[in-house]
Design a protein around this nucleic acid. Structure first.
Length: 264
DNA sequence: ATGGCAATGTTTCATTGA
């Protein structure tokens, strides 16, 4: 099974790119963030024509998440939001695909460490911890995938000194990320040797992408049972190139066994 | 010393992102 996560920064704008990317990459499951679309406006027909069923949880202008599932894969128990955490913002959708619980999340940005948005981010992360603890109790194989908006280590930052203590890199955010790992999740990217300075997001400004001034803030965390089947985790930097890219690149994890569509 | 890009709706600027 090939699982991807991609913050598309407006699905309206990025649909042609997404369709090209689906055809070229042939993922089985795709978690999308920042669709910025109400569910009634979700481009289900175009995505169906590409061979995927879409499950969406969106709103206009901001946020919005979705899970795309390749035709033929068994998908059930779609759920949205975090039970017990009242949230106007559409940031979580989950589904069980081929026996794997896939939790797709768009973690709040936080804006700056002295803002109300930062306090909301930390509260949101705490609620997510409880949500994941419960989900892991019911599913041996779970993937927590999305724009988690946290660079967990200095190695995930192009200039660690510049970002020290800033939003996305602050101690409380990194502690929240560590609590997710402490639940029994692994950062699939770090299960493998990786090229240094591999990132998933680059600012649109300052020629950040050509200079590789990025952060690794998009992640696929996997339960221990799923980690044993994980064969690779890569970031598709090429998808950030060209005209009208998203500022994020897709992260892709491959898992061995258990279904006929699994790649090498 | 500073902003620099992109998307959206409240649209011809303000807000947000990260």
């Amino acid at each position: 099974m090939k699982l991807a996560t991609w913050n598309v920064n407006s699905l309206n704008v990025r649909l042609p790119r997404l369709l090209d990317w689906l055809a070229a990459s042939a993922p089985d499951v795709v978690c999308l963030q920042e669709t910025k679309l109400e569910d009634l406006r979700f481009p289900r027909d175009e995505i169906a024509a590409a061979g995927y069923r879409a499950h969406a949880h969106g709103q206009k202008t901001y946020n919005g998440v979705a899970i795309l599932v390749r035709d033929g894969l068994v998908c059930d128990d779609v759920a949205t939001g975090i039970p017990g955490f009242a949230d106007e913002q559409k940031r979580v959708i989950a589904a069980t695909v081929g026996g794997v619980r896939v939790v797709c999340a768009y973690v709040p940005n936080g804006q700056s460490v002295d803002s109300d948005k930062y306090r909301y981010k930390l509260a949101w992360c705490e609620a997510a911890t409880g949500y994941l603890r419960d989900a892991l109790a019911g599913h041996r194989e779970l993937a927590f995938a999305g724009d988690l908006n946290i660079a967990p280590q200095p190695a995930d930052v192009h200039d660690p000194a510049l970002w020290e203590g800033q939003v996305l890199c602050s101690g409380p955010e990194r502690a929240a990320f560590e609590r997710w790992l402490a639940l029994g999740l692994k950062d699939s990217f770090r299960l493998f040797e990786q090229p240094p300075r591999t990132f998933s997001w680059w600012d649109y400004r300052q020629l950040a992408f050509p200079k590789n001034h990025g952060l690794r803030i998009d992640h696929i965390l996997v339960s221990d049972a799923l980690a044993t089947r994980c064969a690779s985790c890569t970031i598709d930097r090429a998808a950030r190139k060209g005209e009208k890219p998203s500022d994020h690149a897709p992260v892709i994890a491959q898992f061995r066994g258990r279904d006929a569509t699994a790649g090498a």
